[in-house]
Amino acid sequence: MLLNLFFLFSSPMSMLTSFIAVIRTVSVVTGLIIIVDCVALMLVGKINFGTVLPFLIGVVFVAHGIWWHAIRRFITRQRGLSRIWYALWITFGLWLMSFGVFIGSLQQQIKLSQQPLPEVAAIIILGSGTVDGKPTPTLASRLDAAVPIIEAQPNAIVITSGGVGFGRSRSEANIMATYLSEAHSIAFDRIVQEGKSTSTEENLSLSQALLAAQGVSITEPITIVTSDFHTVRAASIARHQGYTQPMTVASMTPLSIRYNAWFREYFAFVSGWLLGEY
Rank of each mutant, 00 (worst) to 15 (best):
F61P: 01
F61E: 01
L126Q: 03
V120N: 04
V120L: 07
A122T: 05
W67H: 05
S105Y: 06
A121M: 12
V59M: 02
I75R: 13
Q115W: 04
G58Y: 01
I75W: 12
F92M: 14
R72F: 15
L94G: 10
W95A: 13
V101F: 06
A70C: 04
R79C: 00
I90T: 08
A122E: 06
G104W: 11
T91Q: 03
G104F: 12
G65C: 02
W95S: 10
K111T: 14
G58H: 00
Y86F: 06
L88T: 10
Q109F: 03
S82Y: 08
V60G: 01
L56D: 01
V62Y: 02
G127H: 04
G127P: 02
V59F: 01
A63I: 06
F55M: 00
Q114M: 14
G58Q: 01
L117T: 15
L106G: 02
F102P: 00
L126M: 14
Y86E: 05
S105A: 11
I124K: 02
G65M: 00
R77P: 04
R77K: 15
F99T: 04
R77Q: 13
G104R: 13
Q115L: 12
I123F: 10
V59S: 00
I75E: 11
V60R: 01
S82K: 13
I71W: 06
T76W: 11
L106R: 03
V101P: 02
L117W: 06
I123Q: 08
I125G: 01
F74S: 15
G80L: 11
T91F: 07
H69F: 11
F61V: 00
R72I: 05
I57A: 13
I84S: 10
V120M: 07
F92N: 12
A87T: 12
A63R: 03
W68T: 03
I57Y: 05
Y86R: 09
Q78N: 14
P118K: 10
G80C: 09
F92E: 07
V101S: 03
K111L: 13
A70T: 07
